[in-house]
Amino acid sequence: MSHGTFSLREPEYEALLFVLRKLLADASARVVFLVDKDGTLLASAGDAAGFDTTSLASLAAGNIAATGGLANLIGEKEFSILFHEGERDNMHLSVIAERLILVVVFDRRSSVGLVRLRVRQASARFNDVMAAAALAAIDAETGGIEELTEADIESLFK
């Protein structure tokens, strides 16, 4: 049994990028990331080059999962917003569209209040894009994955 595959296609990817870039500007953030709850980076906007984005995605997912476990212990479904304050940079994490984590890194040019407001506004747009992505996945082309052969898989190890 495959436990399922999440596919993201070009139009939805571009739509996510558009929303991310708008959020980056509106929230005066340094960088914004969109991560799935399994710890994979979907997209980013801003100065992401200076970050180890793979590690960031994994740890953000671990962070949300761990606090979700804490939430369950007190009878909550999850804590949907986390805020980490640093000396120079701060990080705002929020669960959106049920399965994604939006990570906003910002410094003193912005504020947690502004970030929260802009994240809330962007969440509705992300929800729309993800709903469209789910619909598109139903009748989308599979792009060759189903044609994988033993030889293809073996070629990875040569």
Partner: peptide
């Protein structure tokens, strides 16, 4: 759950 990103292949 595997994740396939067709945009970035």
């Amino acid at each position: 759950m595997s994740f396939i990103n067709y945009a970035s292949r």
